[in-house]
Design a protein around this nucleic acid. Structure first.
Lengths: 190, 190
DNA sequence: CAAAACTTTTGATTTAAATCAAAAAATTAT
DNA sequence: ATAATTTTTTGATTTAAATCAAAAGTTTTG
């Protein structure tokens, strides 16, 4: 497993920052591998989220309950980190559950270990800043799309942005992600 | 002006990180003060945004044109940074103009100077990570509100989040920010 | 202070999408 | 395989908000 960890994660980090030998060691020593079957929960809403998951293979969704229905907040796939953001950053309980849409394998890092890395490796702070920038740009685009497009345009945009995964996700989850009903999405799709 | 710079900005940074004497000097030496009259542009969309503005006094909006109409993307007020995010982070032209809704005074920092600070003061990277976290949480909440609330609920939420500034902003700008028409917002408000 | 320009309100009508209800299709479990 | 469960599609109706149009109210400026 060690070589796999190294190659996949190393490659990911190297997109943002150069990784020194010492950081590599400290980072990989703290990372754990885990597998989840389809439907299993990576995180439960009633707990504080203390782990951040890097998805090696598979697909997960973050969702919450509203009027008894599951509302998808985001999808996360290969080579992305996922956690319950508010819970993870502020060490408190939040509304999100995270489950596996497909059988999923991940590497995870404890928040305390991440804190250690931030304290001892400034380049990790830089990595966080740069990768958060990419996420922010994604969120900003989503906000624009949500405000000024029809249901059809929302779906088309979704298929572009998530072109590798849109066909792997049940329709109902996509609908709530887009803020439309599944009946509407079903009609759009045909 | 020097003491004012120091007190306002110093206080802001200290919310996130301790500021060393040397960072203080390097930071304040690079920051410029500027005033804008109501209606003046801080940033024009056809240029690359190379400055980030910290608002000392006043109120600005970032907007773009869609079908000939001005669509507000966000409002920024006292003690907040504002720039054209994609343009600033990726050094390319984007769609946003930024103008002053009220007479506004700012401190600005050039992207190259910010880069210098990131390279020499790891705590600045941390500051960026932490403050971006706060912005991300704000964007996530906005996404949830946009998808599942009525126009009235959107407006009520807006007034809560922007309780100090909502009454200072023309109705049409608020409407486009919320993704509703100004006729609808006018009806909601009475 | 009056004219011009801009912003907000009001009214009538249309429309995209929600809601309610049920059937069909696809998965999952026995 | 067959039953049970879940997901998706189809149909009829309602509704919130958009659109179109114009009047009323503000603010700016010459």
């Amino acid at each position: 497993m060690e070589t796999q960890k190294e190659s996949i994660l190393y490659h990911h980090f190297e997109k943002f920052i150069p990784i020194s030998e010492s950081l590599k060691i400290e980072l990989f020593n703290r990372i754990e591998y885990q597998e989840f079957k389809k439907g299993e929960l990576l995180h439960q809403s009633h707990k504080v989220c203390t782990k951040s998951y890097f998805i090696q293979k598979g697909l997960v969704r973050s969702f919450f309950l509203k009027d008894g229905k599951e509302i998808t907040e985001f999808f996360s796939c290969e080579n992305e980190w996922v956690n319950s953001p508010k819970s993870f950053m502020q060490r408190k309980v939040d509304i999100y559950d995270i489950d596996a849409i497909e059988d999923t394998s991940v590497f995870w890092l404890e928040i305390n270990d991440l804190g250690y890395l931030f304290d001892h490796f400034p380049e990790m702070e830089r990595y966080a800043r740069l990768s958060m920038g990419a996420i922010m740009r994604h969120l900003l685009e989503r906000i624009t799309i949500l405000r000024f497009t029809t249901a059809k345009e929302k779906y088309n945009h979704f298929c572009e942005v998530y072109k590798d995964i849109y066909h792997r996700i049940p329709l109902g989850m996509v609908a709530s992600y887009l803020g439309i009903t599944q009946e509407t999405l079903s009609r759009i799709r045909k």
